[in-house]
């Protein structure tokens, strides 16, 4: 049995129809039953996830890729869950509308606030930036000096990357710490959309 087959068999969800199984399919998710946990809980967990990942990779890029992967599983769930709570369930398939959704609804669902800005790059028309001046989840992560270019926000870029992919606007998403006056943790999530997405956007725009 290959590694992949082994994992598949471990994760196979061929569950029998039990009481709990049925209850889970019926449970209300419209309003958050449980509101908050301590930020420290997340911070400690996140720090430990970084440490765990660090031991399994060589180099910062691989570490960020691991965090990205962890974030992707969160992203697809956050998208479907937040959409189910919107007044009208819909899909976002256009770049700008999707970005606005991420900037507002997704950020609020995750961080209790909107992202601080959404901008299009002036140099590359296929690049957009979402900026968070004070990402709460990064507050207690201290990055050692020898890893200065490491951005723990790679987890968040994973969340965003999964959402973009679900919305048919695949992009390469990366996270960069860009400190500013009084905002040492200011993080920019950079989305670089695939060529096919930009071409489709042009087609759809001209079709109007």
């Amino acid at each position: 049995m290959t590694s992949q087959q082994q994992v598949q068999s471990l994760l196979k969800l061929d569950t029998k129809a039990s009481k709990r199984s049925t209850l889970l399919l019926e449970q209300p998710v419209t309003r958050q039953r449980r509101d908050k946990v301590g930020l420290s809980s997340f911070a400690f967990l996140f720090a430990e996830m970084i440490r765990y990942s660090q031991n399994r990779v060589l180099g910062i890029q691989d570490l960020e890729a691991k965090l990205n992967e962890l974030g992707q599983r969160v992203g697809v769930r956050v998208l479907e869950l937040t959409m189910s709570r919107e007044k009208i369930v819909r899909r976002e398939t256009r770049v700008l509308q999707m970005l606005v959704y991420i900037n507002s609804v997704v950020w609020r669902a995750l961080f209790d606030k909107q992202a601080d800005s959404l901008e299009r790059s002036t140099e590359n028309e296929d690049e957009y930036m979402i900026t968070d001046n004070e990402p709460a989840i990064l507050k207690y992560i201290s990055v050692p000096r020898e890893m200065a270019s490491f951005s723990p926000g790679a987890f968040v870029s994973g969340v965003v990357e999964a959402i973009a992919s679900c919305c048919q606007c695949p992009a390469r998403v990366t996270s960069h710490v860009v400190p500013a006056e009084g905002m040492p943790l200011r993080t920019v999530i950079l989305l670089k959309f695939d060529k096919e997405v930009m071409e489709r956007e042009k087609r759809l725009e001209s079709g109007k």
């Binding site: 082994q6 471990l10 996830m49 969160v74 961080f111």
Partner: peptide, 28 residues
């Protein structure tokens, strides 16, 4: 005295971690 964060972020993140561990260790 406690800063708070959305429970669902925590829940989904933890879930993602456990699945990653299953993939890495292949043994419960």
């Amino acid at each position: 005295n406690v800063e708070k964060v959305n429970a669902e972020l925590f829940i989904f993140t933890y879930g993602s971690l456990v699945v990653q561990l299953v993939k890495d260790y292949e043994d419960y």
